[in-house]
Nucleic acid binder design. Sequence first.
DNA 1: ATTTAGATCCTCT
DNA 2: GAGGATCTAAATG
Length: 216
Amino acid sequence: MIARDSRLGRDFFAVSAVRLARRLLGQRLVRVLPGGQRLAGIIVETEAYVGTRDRASHAFAGRRTPRNESMFGPAGLAYVYFTYGMHHCFNVVGAREGVPEAVLVRALEPTEGLASMRRRRRLAPNAATHAVCSGPAKLCQALGIDRAQDGVDLCASTVLWIEPAPPIRRAVRTPRIGIAFAGEWAGKPLRFLVPGSFHVSPGGRRGMLPGVSPRA
DNA sequence: ATTTAGATCCTCT
DNA sequence: GAGGATCTAAATG
């Protein structure tokens, strides 16, 4: 049993984006809402954005702007950006200060506050559990994460942090999603998935366990 | 199961 | 002014 107030510290995050993406699988993302309610889910899908030479990264070519400033901060910061006119996405910053490596958290298996998440997602109360957090913008909506959490220190925050949980032994790797524009970087296997999880984003559910259908 | 269009607005050129 | 680390509903095979 892990103490409820234990959380991952700086050392856990201060590694390359690839290592961080890999080791975040299985860990528990915790969000405390303004009203005090606690929501949580196990991370089952991530993507590594590996720095200034990664064409798909917001920090490509060392581009440093007000939007991506958090990527250049110390390991353990949250980087939350807004896109497509309506969606937020949550990243965990890795490496070290000045080195813009980050990991996009793409899917969670909800473990606490499921009804609350469904409401925030405007899903029917009986909607499939794997529809709640199976995508980077979905999980932000479910957990109430937006630009107000950009730059938050996951090692110190009282509203957003990550708790240790059993690591995933073997991860599945595939190319990243939605970055066809990135040339040779589009094909690199920088997306990490928990094998067999039905809570990953739709593209990752195929070809897993034959004969098993996705049900809550 | 897979494909398509449309929503919608912030960020940077 | 262009385009995006997305999602949903609707249409199609």
